[in-house]
Amino acid sequence: MESINYQNFRIDAENICVDYNGKVALYDANLRLKPGQICGLVGMNGAGKTTFFNALTGFVNISKGKIRINGESVRSAQKDQTIAYVPQNEGIDSQFPISVWDVVMMGRYGSMNIFRCPRESDVQAVKDAIERVDLTNHLSTPIGNLSGGQRKRTFLARAIAQRASILLLDEPFSGVDIRTEKLISELFIQFKNEGKTILLSTHDMIHVREFCDLVLLINKTVVAYGETSEVFTPENITTTFGGISPDFLFGPES
C-alpha cells in the first residue's frame, strides 16, 4: 500500500472545524487536492462554502483539525503567495476608486517591499495577467465602470499576477456574460495544464459536470466527496440541499 506523502497534496484539510462565537459553521470537514485538480464546492447558502475558503486562506482560525498547504502551514502558504482568492462580485465594493491596473497590482503586494513599490518584474507580471484576461484596453478604467464579467476577469488577473499555485474562486460564473464564461473556462484548462489546483464554489450544476474533476458536497460538513462522475448523483445532491429534489434544481428533464 502506498504511504501518504503530504507533499503530494496541494491542499490537505483534515477534520477541520470553524465556529463563530460558539456557532458552528463547519465541522469535521476533509479535503485533499493534488496539483492540476479542479474541485467544485457545492452547497446551499450558509452551508459553509465561504467558511471553507476562509479557513484555507487563514482569514478565520480553525478551532479543530489541521490544514496543510503543500505540506506546510497556512501561515507559510500566505508568506509564499501560494493561495489566491477570487471573490464573488457581490463581495467587493465596486464603487471603490481604483483602476483595473491597481487591482491586479495588488496581486503582487505580498512579494514587494514595505512601500509596495512595483519592480520591473511586477509591472511585467501585471501586464501579462491583464493580457490573459483580455482587459488590455481597460488598464486605467475604474472598476466601477466595468461590467460584471470584466470585473470578474480583473480579479482573475490579480490571481494570475500573484502566481499562486492554488486558486479559490467564489462563484466564478455568477453574473458574467457569455464571453467571460468562455474565457474563464479556457483559463481553467490552461491552469490545469500548468499544474494549478482550483477549488471553486458554484450554484450551477452544469458547470460542475463541465469543469470539475472532483466535487465536494457540503452542508456544514462533508456530505460526499470524490470523482464528479461517481459522487455527483441526484441522491447526494438531494441530501446536500436538504431534501429538495434535483429535478427542482436542474429544472424538469426534457
Binding site: T57, D80, Q81, M106, G107, Y109, Q162
Partner: peptide, 13 residues
C-alpha cells in the same frame, strides 16, 4: 488594500 479587500490582504500574508 485593507479597506478594499482585507481577505486578499490576509491571503497574501
Amino acid at each position: 488594500l485593507y479597506c478594499f479587500d482585507p481577505r486578499h490582504a490576509k491571503t497574501v500574508g
